[in-house]
C-alpha cells in the first residue's frame, strides 16, 4: 500500500461520481415530458458530469504521473462557457417555433409578453 494507490482510489471515485451524474441526467432525459424540462437534465450532465470526470482525470495525472495538465482545466472552462449559451438558444428557438409546453405546466408568463 502506498500513496499512489490512494490517489488512484480517490480519482476513480471522483470519475465515478461524474458518470453517476451523467447516468442520472440521461434517465431524466428519457423520463421528462418536454424539451424545456429535458434541457434541465442535460444542462446538469454537461456541467457536473464533465466537471467531475475532468477533475478526476486531472488529479490522477497530477499525482500519479506528476504532470500538471492545464488542457483539462481549459476543457472545463470552455464547457462552462458554451453550455449555457447552447441551452438558452435551443430553448428560445423551440419556444419561438411554437413547441408546446408539457401538460401540467402551471404558468407561462412569456406568452403574454410575446402576444401583447
Amino acid at each position: 500500500m502506498s500513496g499512489s494507490n490512494l490517489i488512484e482510489l480517490i480519482s476513480a471515485l471522483i470519475i465515478l461520481t461524474g458518470t453517476i451524474f451523467s447516468f442520472l441526467s440521461s434517465i431524466g432525459y428519457i423520463r421528462l415530458p418536454d424539451i424545456y424540462n429535458r434541457a434541465h437534465a442535460l444542462a446538469k450532465s454537461s456541467t457536473l458530469g464533465v466537471l467531475f470526470v475532468l477533475l478526476g482525470t486531472f488529479l490522477f495525472f497530477l499525482f500519479a504521473e506528476g504532470y500538471f495538465s492545464i488542457k483539462l482545466f481549459l476543457g472545463i472552462f470552455f464547457v462552462f462557457l458554451t453550455s449555457p449559451v447552447s441551452t438558452h438558444v435551443i430553448c428560445r428557438s423551440a419556444y419561438h417555433s411554437g413547441v408546446e409546453m408539457a401538460e401540467g405546466s402551471v404558468q407561462d408568463e412569456l406568452k403574454q409578453f410575446i402576444k401583447g
Binding site: 442520472l24 441526467s25 434517465i27 431524466g28 423520463r31 421528462l32 415530458p33 418536454d34 424545456y36 424540462n37 434541465h40 437534465a41 446538469k44 409546453m101 408539457a102 401540467g104 405546466s105 402551471v106 404558468q107 407561462d108 408568463e109 412569456l110 406568452k111 409578453f113
Partner: peptide
C-alpha cells in the same frame, strides 16, 4: 433536480416565470 428525476412518480409542475 435529481430528487425530482428519480422519484418513482414524476410530479413536476414546470412553467415560465418572469
Amino acid at each position: 433536480v435529481i430528487q425530482r428525476i428519480i422519484k418513482p412518480k414524476l410530479d413536476i409542475k414546470p412553467g415560465i416565470v418572469a
